[in-house]
Computed example of a mutant assay.
Amino acid sequence: MQFVLNQLGRAVPAGVAVCLLLVCGGVYWGQNYTTVSRAGDITLAVEADLAMAHEDGVQAHATPANEAAARESRRSVATKIVTKRRAGLGLVNRGHSTVYEATFPEFPSTSSFLRDVNRILGTSHSSDMAEFTTVDWSLVWDELRTPTWSNREWSGIVTTDVLCATDQAVSLLEHRSEYTGGAHPNPWFVSRNFIDDHGKARELKLAELFDPSSGWADQLTLYCSNDLRRQGASYLAPLDDTDPNAITRMVTLDADDFRTFGLSATALWIFFGPYHVGTYAEGNYSVKVPYEELERFLTADSPARLFRPSERGSR
């Protein structure tokens, strides 16, 4: 009997240690994982998705008269990929975790160009996800001992609008938002415009659309400034700069402010996030510039023509 008791005395601590390891492992792996799924289709964005209307200085949902018809005509252009990663360690409102979720398109493999776009998007989102969810274990330990509400969970979210998708050209607008402590998340836009370059996807710069000697930058600046004033963007200097009620933080636009752009079948779109041309409360702004307004500034072989249905294949 004494022998049995001695053996139990040795086995119980070892069993407890194994159980603790299993529990800790379960808690850790339950909070540190990556998933990738296909979640239906992504459809081509319509104007209601891109026109960021404002009422009384606050962003409002754009509801053009033909919105219902436009939504009915949405065309599926890609498979929706949702990738998510969680990392860190949290226990009963203590600890620190990071969560990153990206939704982006996977286009049909109908051309080497689209396959390369898929490769670029998959690689870049994987890299961004890995960077954001790299865990600072010293912060985890600090938050386990002395928790603070702002560090409990940090999050990164990416969703994607597709403005154009053909076998020669793709235009995407990524809506990004990150929360890493503080009063509110920080949202911004990332635009990605690809054209076919001998079977490879090459990202397009805005200046490539235009004849460099045409004065396009000045005209685009004037067009966007006037449209943003019409929308009520409070940071733009008013035409009457003696207005005593004007917000004192004024900006003057130039070509560097148009780096976030997209190309649909009918227009060039310029996007502005919070704090760019207005306060955080005002939200986002966008300016639609119909191609008819730009025609005299485009070259005969402008890449913009790849995004216009009537001119594809004419380059």
Rank of each mutant, 00 (worst) to 15 (best):
M1G: 15
L5Y: 10
N6L: 14
A14I: 15
G15A: 12
V16Q: 06
L20F: 12
L22V: 13
G26Q: 08
V27L: 15
Y28R: 05
T34K: 11
V36I: 14
A39I: 07
T43W: 02
L44E: 03
L44M: 08
A48P: 07
D49G: 10
L50E: 11
G57P: 06
S73H: 12
V77F: 06
A78V: 05
T79F: 02
T83L: 00
L89F: 14
G90V: 05
L91E: 08
N93L: 15
G95R: 02
S97Q: 14
S97Y: 00
E101Q: 15
A102D: 08
A102C: 11
P108T: 00
P108M: 06
S112N: 06
V117H: 00
N118K: 07
I120C: 01
I120S: 03
M129K: 10
F132P: 03
F132I: 05
T134E: 13
V135D: 04
D136A: 07
E143P: 03
E143Q: 15
L144N: 01
R145H: 03
W149Y: 09
W149E: 14
S150D: 14
S155H: 07
I157H: 13
V158N: 02
T159K: 10
T160F: 01
D167G: 05
Q168A: 10
A169Q: 01
S171E: 11
A183M: 12
H184Y: 13
F189N: 05
F189G: 02
V190K: 05
D196C: 07
D197Y: 02
L204M: 12
L206Y: 08
E208A: 14
E208L: 07
L209F: 15
D211L: 11
W216P: 01
W216R: 09
D218S: 15
T221F: 04
L222S: 13
S225F: 02
N226C: 06
D227V: 09
Y235L: 03
P238A: 08
D241N: 14
N245M: 11
G262P: 01
T266Y: 10
F271G: 00
F272R: 00
H276A: 14
V277M: 05
G278L: 02
G278T: 00
G283L: 06
G283K: 04
N284D: 13
K288T: 12
Y291P: 05
E292V: 15
R296A: 13
L298G: 09
P303C: 09
R312K: 13
R315I: 06
